[in-house]
Simulated assay, not measured.
Amino acid sequence: MANQHKLILLDLDGTLFVGNQEIPGAVKSIAHLREQGFILRFLTNTTTKSHAELFGQMISLGFRLAPEELISAPIGAKLELQAIQQKRNRPLRIWPVVADAIKPDFAEFEYDDVNPDFVVLGDIGERWDLALINKLFNLIHGGAELIALHKNRFWQTEDGLKADIGFFVAGLEYVCSKNALIMGKPNADFFKRVLDSVGVSPAQTIMVGDDIDSDVGGAQLLGMKGCLVKTGKFRQAYFDASSVKPDWVLASIADLPEVLAAS
């Protein structure tokens, strides 16, 4: 089976590392995959760190990759907004409700928190409160479109599982009777953009991650193979209740090169 596949997409947090700790064997695993001839791309829904910060973190943990191999949800959103702006042939007004670290990624667009064309929603930590939720509701209900950098349900931290921004995205969709444009995994356009940039088909691609919904399920819907690792946010009860059936379930990323070599 390994000969059929050319590209491996790899989730970051929970798959290669948790916080600032490498998943044991992850660095060696990535090196072995390169030796086996696979093209690698590193995909993340993390929206609290800029591309440069994420890249620097991976290098500091010992991973070897080129900057263009790392693709984040904010970069995907920026590309989407650029395409919309070009199509509309006018400057877009946006309100980026995102971490301060990634606001520069959207600097080319006009800032407007009164009458924006788009609200861009990402992780903002402890800044959520009822006043912000009501402002978002009124802007979106009043006509602004919502771009969510992802819609993850929960994520793994060094202190355990925490609810993710999917909680707020789903709530805003419900009260505004609108669907958000979701960037990042499991958005099909996000996956397609990555595959097209490499020139590889879904049938030649494997997605590896700790999220059975965003990583495995999203990839399989597009025709890719999905590999679930039992690190990060993996929980056995959630796995048992899921309708998603991964093509591989591994103890960790450290097992992947050997499994693919034997396939």
Rank of each mutant, 00 (worst) to 15 (best):
K6D: 07
L7I: 03
I8N: 13
L10H: 11
L10I: 10
G14P: 06
G19M: 05
I23M: 06
P24R: 03
P24M: 02
G25L: 05
A31L: 07
E35P: 01
I39L: 15
I39P: 01
L40W: 05
R41N: 08
R41T: 01
T44Y: 07
T46F: 01
T48M: 09
A52Q: 14
E53A: 14
F55V: 05
G62H: 09
R64V: 10
L65V: 01
P67M: 05
S72F: 00
L79H: 06
E80H: 07
L81C: 06
L81H: 04
A83S: 08
Q85L: 00
N89A: 09
R90C: 03
P91Y: 01
P96N: 11
A101C: 05
K103H: 12
E108G: 01
E110M: 08
V114R: 15
P116R: 11
D123V: 00
G125L: 02
W128N: 10
D129K: 03
L130I: 07
A131E: 15
L132N: 07
L132S: 07
N134L: 05
L136F: 05
F137P: 00
L139N: 12
A144G: 10
I147Y: 09
A148V: 01
H150D: 05
T157V: 03
D159K: 11
D159C: 01
G160Q: 09
K162D: 04
K162P: 02
A163R: 08
D164K: 02
F168H: 13
F168W: 14
G171E: 08
Y174I: 01
V175K: 10
L181R: 14
I182E: 14
M183E: 15
M183C: 13
P186T: 03
A188N: 08
A188L: 10
D189I: 02
F191Q: 12
F191I: 05
V194F: 02
L195I: 00
S197W: 00
V200A: 12
S201W: 00
D215V: 01
D215E: 04
A219C: 08
M224G: 05
K225V: 00
C227W: 01
R235H: 06
Q236F: 02
A237Q: 15
F239R: 09
A241G: 11
S242L: 08
V244C: 12
D247H: 04
V249D: 12
V249R: 11
A254Y: 03
D255E: 15
V259I: 13
A261V: 00
S263G: 12
